[in-house]
Design a protein around this nucleic acid. Structure first.
Length: 231
DNA sequence: GACCAGGCACATC
DNA sequence: GATGTGCATGGT
């Protein structure tokens, strides 16, 4: 009795948390994609799917030499679905990619530079109107394909921040995004690295264990007792 | 065989 | 605005 762990309260501001994580892990070099268009396709394919399965689907598209809007346009939705089968939900995702292509062609004639010139808020509203593009996918496209300063929230962000004690796990996407953006300077590079770090953390140490046991956030955590870079 | 992974649309309350 | 369900593969 009496030895129960106190509820952890974050000792660091969110920005300090970022600095710690970044200092420890270093840059993540996200998004793993060679072109903005590849990033967009990857953002759709990775919905509720392990990234490894997405890589397989993207490699398939590359092997068939169709990872360009003009090439994908020629494929039927059924043909496309077969090529991205390994990413799961392939019928839905083929539909989603086709829907994005229609928008991309109609509004921007497949010109990424023109799309990138559009203001963040207008572009975000547009993307959310497209079938299959929800808030996280829209923000991923905006941040990682178009370098717009919008914070990407996902299941890892929610899990990690609530476990550390910054938020509760019942926050909606909108609220969680708002919390992050209000706590941080509006900076594309920072948003880019922070989201990548959340995913890295989520995959590595807090999948099933309470994050407070070994997270790098609290000064007394073994994991982060030294401020040395990871070897 | 169960469970999970870098969600989303749609129906319903 | 919140909650439940279908979508589907591949790794653990």
């Amino acid at each position: 009795m009496g030895a129960s762990r106190k509820k952890q309260v974050p000792k660091l501001s969110l920005y300090e948390l970022f600095q710690r994580l970044y200092g420890y892990f270093g840059p993540c070099h996200w998004w793993p994609g060679e072109t903005p268009f590849e990033v967009i396709i990857g953002a759709i394919l990775t919905q509720n799917t392990a990234w490894k399965n997405v890589v397989s689907a993207i490699n398939n598209l590359k092997t068939k030499d169709v990872l360009e809007p003009e090439r994908l346009e020629i494929l039927s939705q059924e043909e496309l679905a077969l090529l991205i089968r390994s990413s799961g939900y392939y019928n839905q995702k083929a539909h989603k990619i086709k829907s994005f292509l229609e928008y991309y062609k109609t509004k921007y004639s497949y010109k990424i530079g023109d799309m990138a010139k559009t203001l963040l808020e207008e572009l975000r509203d547009d993307l959310l109107q497209i079938y299959g593009i929800g808030e996280e996918t829209a923000d991923s496209i905006l941040l990682y394909a178009l370098n717009k300063p919008t914070f990407v929230v996902d299941a890892y962000t929610n899990r990690i921040l609530s476990r550390i004690g910054y938020t509760t796990d019942t926050l909606s996407y909108k609220k969680l995004k708002q919390f992050c953006e209000e706590s941080l300077p509006q900076d594309t590079k920072l948003y880019n690295e922070f989201h990548a770090l959340f995913v890295l953390l989520g995959k590595s140490i807090c999948k099933s264990t309470p994050l407070c046991i070994e997270c790098p956030v609290h000064n007394d955590c073994l994991f982060f007792i030294s401020k040395n870079k990871r070897k």
